[in-house]
């Protein structure tokens, strides 16, 4: 048994099974887009293991294949080579065990905030009663601070509020892995800060393994346990990984005042400017 398999499937010692700590395992991941001029390799030899209850942010230049990688994990984009496994099970297509928060809120504009969250909840908890499902949806909408807006049509909400619904929808389906594709990229910096706080607050409670793409160095440090830096494409792979060792729960203030903050920041910026 190779070390990798042990990590994936868990270890056995004296007859007791120790479950693996790896939630998400990407091995030798490859993505190729065929073009008339020959194959265009977006990602190659990408290896990454993400542990349970870990929050990983991925940072890299535009077009390096971050989003491609995330949508392959989500199962929305087919894999050209290598493997993606969630708890040792290879990914075959999309599913609610991997919740996605998209860059645009992607709410159904004709539905209310509650209906949008319920759309997922109904799917994941088919045996719960209607009232129970409603309670779940309402709980998460409450968590993202949308108490008064349950019955507002998604279209009537501001971008920030819509993305709050997006967060509620993703958490409400209790995924194993949460995939966030630059969820705050389209928001102004004030709203972005608010939503980061909300996200981290829910996350502290639910501890769902999260992979988040971001362009924002500060956001990457504030949210993550590890920041994964990707090299520029084509044939992008992981360039460097930075462990963020701030205690949780964190506050923005405590993070900004921490001595290591600027060391981390400098590390990331050095990598990106290199």
């Amino acid at each position: 048994m190779s070390t990798e398999t042990i990590l994936n499937k868990g270890t056995t010692q004296n007859g007791i099974v120790f479950p693996s700590k790896v939630m998400l395992d990407l091995s030798n991941l490859k993505k190729v887009y065929p073009t008339p001029k020959g194959d265009y390799v977006v990602l190659e030899n990408l290896n990454l293991q993400i542990m349970k209850e870990e929050f990983v942010t991925i940072i890299g230049h535009s077009g390096c294949g971050k989003t491609t990688m995330l949508s392959m994990i989500a199962g929305l984009n087919p894999i050209s080579g290598g493997n993606i496994a969630v708890l040792g099970n290879p990914v075959k297509g999309p599913g609610p065990d991997r919740g996605v928060i998209f860059q645009s809120p992607s709410l159904m504009p004709w539905m209310t905030a509650l209906e949008n969250v319920l759309l997922g909840v109904n799917q994941v908890f088919p045996h719960a009663t209607k009232a129970q499902r409603k309670d779940i949806a309402k709980y998460y909408l409450h968590k993202v601070g949308l108490d008064g807006a349950f019955d507002k049509k998604a279209i009537e909400l501001s971008q920030g509020m819509q993305q709050r619904v997006g967060i509620a929808r993703a958490f409400a389906i209790k995924p194993k892995v949460l995939l966030l594709d630059e969820p705050f990229g389209m928001l102004d910096s004030l709203t972005r800060g608010e939503l980061q706080d909300i996200l981290i607050e829910i996350w502290n409670k639910e501890k769902i393994t999260a992979v988040m793409i971001t362009h924002d160095v500060d956001e990457a440090i504030f949210l993550a346990d590890r920041v994964v830096m990707m090299t520029s494409g084509p044939s992008a792979k992981i360039g460097d990984i930075l462990d963020i060792e701030f205690e949780r729960p964190r506050t923005r203030k405590s993070v900004l005042e921490h001595d290591d903050y600027y060391t981390y920041r400098k590390h990331l910026i050095d990598f990106l400017e290199h």
Binding site: L76, P96, V100, S104, M108
Partner: peptide, 26 residues
Amino acid sequence: DKDYINVAKVLKLGTFQKIFKVILPS
């Protein structure tokens, strides 16, 4: 909109639900 279809895929909506909850309203 491709985003709506992606949401339907991630939530694994059945064909019937996908048509009546996502495709037709949109």
